[in-house]
Each structure stands twice: as structure tokens, then as C-alpha cells.
Amino acid sequence: MTSTLSPAELTQQLESLESRMAYQEHWLDTLDQAVAQQERRLATLEQLSALMRERLREQHQARHMDDAPDASRPEDDIPPHY
């Protein structure tokens, strides 16, 4: 099926396609920037999560060391007025 379009109609179709392509390129760039920003944010959150895990591990180990029978805990101390 062949369609004969006038030069003006072809020009209009070409301009429409170019406009749509420019719009899509703009949104592709915008999405690319958003993905890059999310990747940076994810990396930062992963680092923060790793630091928090390490601190929790250290606190957990310190707490178990405090639970040793020879270690005195403040809550076990008898207040001076007794």
C-alpha cells in the first residue's frame, strides 16, 4: 500500500517525529540522571548500613563481655544507703 503525501505533509510528519524524539531524549536523560542519583544514594545507604551492623556487633560483643561472672554491672551494685 503506497501513500502519496505532499512535501508539506512529509515535512509536517518529519517535524512531528523529530519533536517526539527530542521529547523522548529529554526524558531519557532525566531518567538516566535519576538512576545515577539513586545509585549514589544506595551506595551511601549501604555504607551506613555496614557501619551500623559493625557498631551493633561491637555493642553485642561488649555486652556479652559485661555479662561475664567476674564483671560487675552498675545495676548489681548496692546503693550506698543500704
Rank of each mutant, 00 (worst) to 15 (best):
M1D: 15
T2Y: 09
T2K: 11
S3Y: 06
S3Q: 14
T4F: 14
T4S: 14
S6V: 02
S6Y: 09
S6D: 11
S6T: 13
P7F: 09
P7C: 07
P7R: 09
A8H: 13
E9D: 03
E9R: 12
L10D: 01
L10A: 10
L10K: 13
T11D: 13
Q12L: 03
Q13L: 15
Q13S: 11
Q13E: 06
L14C: 03
E15D: 15
E15F: 08
S16A: 15
S16Y: 09
L17N: 06
R20P: 02
M21W: 14
A22F: 02
Y23R: 07
Y23L: 15
Y23Q: 11
Q24L: 15
Q24I: 10
Q24T: 01
E25K: 14
E25F: 05
H26F: 12
H26S: 09
H26K: 10
W27R: 09
L28W: 12
D29F: 13
D29C: 12
T30N: 07
T30V: 07
T30E: 03
D32V: 04
Q33D: 11
A34F: 02
A34T: 02
A34Y: 02
V35R: 02
V35Q: 04
V35P: 01
A36M: 03
Q37A: 10
Q38G: 05
E39P: 05
E39R: 12
E39F: 05
R41Q: 14
R41D: 08
L42P: 03
L42M: 12
A43W: 02
A43H: 09
A43S: 04
A43E: 07
L45P: 01
L45W: 05
E46A: 10
E46P: 02
E46M: 08
Q47K: 04
Q47T: 07
L48W: 00
L48F: 01
S49T: 09
S49Y: 10
A50F: 07
L51R: 15
M52T: 08
M52D: 15
M52I: 12
M52G: 01
R53A: 08
R53P: 01
R53Q: 12
E54N: 14
E54C: 05
R55Q: 07
L56E: 10
R57Q: 14
R57C: 07
Q59E: 10
Q59P: 02
Q59C: 07
Q59G: 05
H60P: 02
H60E: 13
Q61F: 00
A62D: 06
A62K: 00
A62G: 03
R63S: 14
R63P: 07
R63A: 11
H64F: 02
H64L: 09
M65D: 10
M65T: 06
D66R: 06
D66F: 02
D66P: 00
D67A: 09
D67G: 05
A68F: 09
P69Y: 03
P69M: 10
P69S: 03
P69Q: 09
A71N: 00
A71I: 08
R73T: 00
R73V: 07
P74M: 01
E75V: 01
E75C: 00
E75M: 00
E75S: 00
E75W: 03
D76P: 00
D76G: 00
D76K: 03
D76I: 00
P79N: 02
P80Y: 07
P80C: 04
P80S: 01
P80E: 01
H81T: 01
